[in-house]
């Protein structure tokens, strides 16, 4: 089996597509290959958050646990996604549970290392943050659509009833 370098793997990942290869090599220094079995915990709510993951293949579920609902999956992430933003800002703690659903291979980046490299090379840091911000905005948009519960109040296809909401009195409404 031919092993490939980490920066080669990163170059194939959605998030890093088109990034300057020098930056990739620089960032790869903070990363290592990891794998998770189905059901394995990647992170727990409250854990120290010092990792950023680029998911290469598989599926992970972001969950929230409440006494009322039990474990509720609020989002799944698959091939080409990135996971984790709590490593960016203090107090560097995960706010959700994350669990592998399928066998998952990812590149795990050390948060402290990554923050340091972005500080050292602001141009690279800016490039990284731009891509990261894009991921966050799309995620926020999708979350908003989920929140809107668009299917909740939805229609019978092609329109509403002809005599909806009219009381069936002697005059029929």
């Amino acid at each position: 089996m031919e092993t490939r370098s980490l920066d080669e793997l990163l170059g194939e990942h959605n998030f890093f597509e088109g990034m300057d290869p020098r930056y990739l090599t620089f960032i790869a220094g903070c990363g290592r290959n990891v794998a998770f079995h189905p059901g394995a915990w990647i992170a727990r709510d409250g854990d120290a958050a010092d990792s950023f993951y680029a998911i290469r293949h598989g599926q992970v579920a972001i969950e929230v646990h409440s006494p009322r609902t039990g474990a509720l999956v609020i989002q799944t992430l698959g091939d080409g996604a990135v996971l984790g933003w709590s490593w960016l800002f203090p107090p560097y703690r995960w706010h959700f549970d994350v669990r592998a659903v399928e066998p998952t291979r990812a590149v795990q980046f050390d948060g402290t290392c990554l923050r340091g490299k972005c500080d050292d090379d602001p141009a690279m840091g800016y490039e990284f943050m731009k891509r990261f911000a894009r991921v966050l905005t799309r995620s926020l948009e999708a979350t908003r659509l989920q929140l809107l519960d668009v299917y909740g109040e939805e229609r019978a296809p092609a329109g509403a009833a002809a005599t909806e909401e009219r009381p069936l009195g002697p005059r029929g409404g």
């Binding site: 109040e153 019978a156 509403a160 009833a161 909806e164 909401e165 029929g172």
Partner: peptide, 19 residues
Amino acid sequence: TERVWDSCFDVNFARVAGG
């Protein structure tokens, strides 16, 4: 089934199940 005059000013005129 009776057809009756209606008005677009009726608040339910354009109402559908989706809103």
